[in-house]
Design a protein around this nucleic acid. Structure first.
Lengths: 212, 212, 212, 212
DNA sequence: TATGAATGAGGTTTCATTCAT
DNA sequence: GATGAATGAAACCTCATTCAT
């Protein structure tokens, strides 16, 4: 059943008394025009990072919008579905890992350390690694980029004996997921401690950078 | 991304301070228990009849629930989707037509008259006949029942010359849709007048009963 | 006979693709200044015709703007409210009917046929005929123009016996609405068939032109 | 070895189908009075095991009740909050581990294997290990029982060199959490494979029993 | 004690409309 | 003039939880 010639508020009132539907401007934030777009996107990302970091990736999107100081609609414009936002948030971290991998003097311990720092800092990271649906391809793609970055140091690490021969980059990704699993339910300082112990149990050396 | 061990209000507050989620009881209508079920269903139907009658079948369902004095959830329990409600509303009318068709001394003019009365009284009736999607099968089924009921008088009407030879029950349904189309944008008394004129143009006699 | 559904901007591409022939700013669509006004208006009309034709007149206006390759703001500048756009779209058809009425050798069957073609081709046409609010005066005015155009052939048709004596031009408009009502829920070829049968039931001869 | 995932009410039918052996009232499911309490509790547990196993521990509780063929109210009577139900479900598994630990000839590989089997079979297991709130004490208690059970084999395993000296029972629990983390997003047979590889990376031998 | 309907909060999403640039 | 991002109201729907019977 579809509306007809669309009553602005279909069916609300028998007829007449149209109340403007999406009318804005009532003390809220001003419409800053297109110029705000980039800023809003960044604000949304920052807000999502915080909210997902502390509440996990299934926190209400409305909370993200509110935290960003942005209307719900803007959130949806920038990130049409929740996963778009999640991916965007974590992509920043992936990019950081890739950048580090581009640095000649970073070794596997550094790369894993950076990944670990991200996991320690963000509850949402675990979600990444744990959604039970068959894993959206965007998430998978992110994982593959991490695996690739880690893989660039695999030969070196194997050669130096830091990593057992036969270790694949998939194994490294699995190890990361395991480390993340080990963080579950831990809070505060305990998270770093657990992460360290997890890597010890895995027999891998990592150098976790200090929190930003 | 799915919640975990479901925080009652996931992500709302970092931790603790659970606020009961669906807690009710706050001055609203009391939960009368299962006994209310039948009454509520009836109330919903009545409300839907009114709301759909004046606002068309795409009026907000929340309006129906409110008018029925019932929570939204109850509406969804009884009628899982909008079409269920629409069908239920119009089925009452179809049943009435079938009942009339079961009366030996009702002729085609009576049956069409009853259908016309329904159309005149309810804006929503037109919607029935007009949804542009390929017509849900439940709606189609309703139409077929009307066609069948009308069909029981077709031979008689053809025989008496009230209806041209070669008229099918599909034609009768088409004629009903046409009559309904003719009501568009008409209001109040004008609706009956238009309906009458529509039938005249179609060359069919109908006996429209007075409004209930 | 003017092709009513002709596309002023035939090659309108699926999405975006604003006609580029001006100075570009910031990578977005070019702002052509006043020069573009007429072209944009035409593009919007063409887009609206398509969108309303397939989705009904309550399709999202944003879809129209996007299809036209035009900003939302421009849409609102040209057509301050939805009805303005609807009216403009259908006015094209009305004009075509009027033009046909100006042709001496077109008779009522031709005029009704053209109207029917429009109805068959556009889902939105039915909406016109069926909005439940008291009918905006702009719509009414459009109806009156059609009635007037049809009225110019009424005497002739009555004289030749094609139409029963006593038929008014309002009746013709009603008949059109009825025919449109009969198209409900029909799709594809079925629409023409239904239209033909509707006219048969009404006892009127119409000559429906082929689709453009 | 007790089959942990055994179904106390094996024939639980897809929906509804409360065990009928009492007086019926008003056509609905029979109210069996106190007699049914134990049976209902078992049915709820079984249902929860299935639902949580396939949908995670945040599946709708209504789904559990429906699957158990029991009213929502009964669910709440037996398990006042969601965690009670979760705990009860996993407690069965813990008990099984404890029972296995009571068997003299089971070694650490057997105990870890059983835990692994549970994790592989139930998506919900991962949730256990990953809730982000500060970990309810009931969950913690469950963890401690598992740690204790595993701890009974720690000395032996350390002695035989199967486990490095310095490994604590907390480490074993951490390892389990890590293994569970490694299962994320894996489905079907892949889950066992991942689990095996996880234990390899951890350098621990486990004997995973076949699925029940 | 079991049942199952009722409740309503709140998350998600869409869109008409405005407005800085 | 044109652009297109921003806005927020409101519809939709789901579910935890209560409670009359």
């Amino acid at each position: 059943m579809t509306g007809v010639l669309r009553d602005p508020r279909p069916g609300a009132l028998p007829h007449g008394t149209a109340v403007p539907h999406g009318t804005t401007r009532r003390g809220g934030a001003p419409n800053l025009g297109p110029r705000a777009a980039a800023g809003n996107r960044a604000a949304l990302l920052a807000a999502a990072r915080e909210i997902f970091g502390s509440g996990g990736t299934d926190a209400p999107l409305s909370a993200v919008a509110k935290r960003a100081g942005v209307g719900q609609g803007s959130l949806y414009r920038h990130f049409p579905d929740r996963l778009d936002l999640v991916v965007a948030v974590f992509e920043e971290q992936v990019v950081a890992v890739e950048e580090l991998a581009a640095t000649p003097d970073a070794d596997l311990a550094d790369l894993l350390g950076l990944v670990t720092r991200n996991a320690v800092d963000s509850v949402g990271f675990v979600d990444l690694v744990r959604s039970r649906v068959p894993a959206d391809e965007r998430i998978v793609a992110l994982g593959e980029r991490v695996a690739a970055a880690l893989g660039t140091r695999l030969a070196g690490a194997t050669g130096s004996g830091d990593v057992p021969a036969g270790t694949t980059s998939d194994d490294l990704l699995l190890a990361v997921a395991m480390m993340a699993g080990g963080l579950s339910q831990a809070e505060g300082e305990d998270r770093v401690r657990r992460a360290r112990r997890a890597w010890e149990l895995l027999g891998l050396e990592v150098r976790i950078p200090d929190a930003a």
